[in-house]
Design a protein around this nucleic acid. Structure first.
Lengths: 328, 328
DNA sequence: TTTAGTATTGAAATCGTTTTCATAATGTTA
DNA sequence: TAACATTATGAAAACGATTTCAATACTAAA
């Protein structure tokens, strides 16, 4: 493993000159520059970036924290971010927190140790007060998830609206008994529930806690929820699932049990993932323009990093759209 | 941002002693240890890990390079790796190369600069000779993809076998005109094609290059392939797609055009992703026990890092299994 | 021919750690 | 009591880069 010293020696010049060549400083004569480059080439020299970072060089890397990479929403989000970052010469580093608050916090070491210039929080298991201390080491913004106390930019959707339009759609179709699923108590889930409750109560309906489920994330969870409601005496005729994965599982399991969707059970998903158009029936869902969110979040992050934008408490809201298909 | 110097000053001790406390060295008296810890606490001190890394401290981080995070196969693979790594106190860092050789190579900077202890290559756009120089900076192994020249461990599947059993299954069902899709010319694709060709020629059939497609990755690609073959005069009656995403797109598009699967077109996927059981018909595919691959690869990586295993040219093969469903 | 400015280079200080080496204090054995 | 470990500590030298400062060479203006 060669160092700058070896290069300097080989080129018959000082470390300072070699460093100047590496960093494209002016005031290096053409011939010395070439000599240095040749020496680097011959040795296969690569600067040690730990050493460089010690001298406060930007890393041109951004980390994204997500909770569950197996959720296609996150895959797509990250993919869009990555593309945007690459376009600006930045690398994206992906960290999967598995909905574990400690793990989420551990990844902030990347910031502290200057391995990344910024962190995009697309998962938020920790309170803002736990995150805040890290902001002095680099840029932190939220994307999709957020903490209301946060004093940084939040690129997100109006999830209250999301919950509202999904539920309203079912009400408009004449349903009065509408079930609801959510993940954990994240900001997204909490707000969506608010929207659901708003729509339901507006329609003069008393929400039935029996029909509201928590910690529901996967296709298998969706299947299970179907079985739970199928076993009920008084059961919902429609379901707002908050996730296309859950919707897919629920619909499939219903069909396997001889139910007809939407006649026996109407289902609304969330995300407009590919699965929504692949299943039969193609199902109604809410498109949140995932790629746009990812792209916008990365755009904002890069602007802040490069000093072109201030990182203040600000919500950047992106649109949501109900896509009606055959499951409702 | 406080340094070890500040802590030393505050505790009335030397930097060396502080460092010893940080690193749990023996030979530090209990009272000084407490004093140091108190000082660190009060200042909110965190060691600068760039500086630490300069002195060759292990990072307890492993990077995984994948080509396409939106492919559920990779999401699942990574998820399994992450779980295994976490169990051993390691962090996983995910890098999406987007099938771009330069990007793939750029991520090796993480190794060079000691930001990770090892890299698992689940994408292999570069030749081994391009990768080899980096091996002196840390551990490199392959997972799923590989380069035959590589002199490191490869955790993978017998893809020739995979291509063979998928095609053989269609032959056994009486098909003689079997189409084939692959991604780019990766080791996985190349070997799978070998298996396909072996099965076909064994059956005395001349493979038809018209029915063999390349650079096919996505659901939309699958849809397009259907349209291409539908427009042919002489068309295949069955398809080995090499991917559940492609199979899903193809089946859906066929149905939208009034074809019946499997009667008008039989389709075999690859991966046994959730989608394979959600669609109607549920489709035949090849289960490659994705989680097992990820888990095994991470296990091997950690063993090598911790010196319990030698990193030599060795293939660790995991099983494949054809899952027959209703699409064939 | 001075004088001033600009281009070019290297020695040495610096970044924040860990580690080596030296020294001192204490305990243990013969 | 002498000789030798063992424990505890700090000063200073790494690690591999960048950057400051000073020195020199060259050019253009006065």
């Amino acid at each position: 493993m060669y160092t700058i010293k070896d290069v300097a020696l080989k080129a018959g010049l000082s470390q300072a000159t070699v460093s100047r060549v590496i960093n494209n400083h002016p005031y290096v004569s053409e011939d010395k520059k070439q000599a240095v480059q040749r020496a680097m080439e011959e040795l296969g020299y690569v600067p040690n970036s730990s050493a460089r970072r010690l001298r406060n060089i930007k890393t041109k890397k951004v980390a994204v924290l997500i909770s569950r990479i197996v959720n296609p929403f996150f895959s797509q989000l990250v993919d869009a971010m990555e593309q945007k970052a690459a376009k600006h010469g930045y690398q994206l580093i992906l960290c999967n927190t598995r909905i574990n608050p400690e793990k989420e916090l551990e990844y902030f070491e990347l910031l502290q140790s200057k391995q990344v210039d910024g962190i995009i929080l697309a998962a938020a298991e920790n309170k803002w007060e736990a995150i805040a201390p890290f902001t002095r080491y680099g840029t932190v913004i939220y994307c999709n998830e957020y903490d209301p106390d946060a004093t940084v930019t939040r690129v997100r959707l109006d999830q209250v609206e999301g919950g509202y339009i999904g539920t309203k759609h079912l009400l408009d179709k004449g349903h009065r008994k509408i079930g609801y699923c959510q993940g954990n108590d994240s900001s997204v889930s909490v707000n969506r529930r608010r929207g659901y409750l708003k729509a339901v109560t507006e329609a003069g309906i008393e929400p039935n806690p029996e029909w509201m489920f928590k910690d529901i994330f996967t296709i298998d969870n969706g299947r299970e929820i179907f079985r739970r409601i199928a076993a009920m005496d008084d059961r919902p005729t429609a379901f707002f699932t908050g996730s296309d994965e859950v919707a897919a599982g629920m619909i499939k399991e219903a069909q396997l049990n001889g139910w007809c969707v939407p006649d026996d059970l109407a289902v609304v998903g969330f995300d407009d993932q590919p699965i929504a158009t692949l299943m039969d029936p193609q199902f109604t869902t809410i498109n949140q323009f995932t790629s746009d969110i990812g792209e916008k979040a990365m755009e904002v992050m890069l602007e802040i990093i490069e000093g072109k934008r201030e990182n203040k408490a600000e919500d950047i809201l992106l649109p949501l759209k109900l896509i009606e298909r055959q499951s409702t």
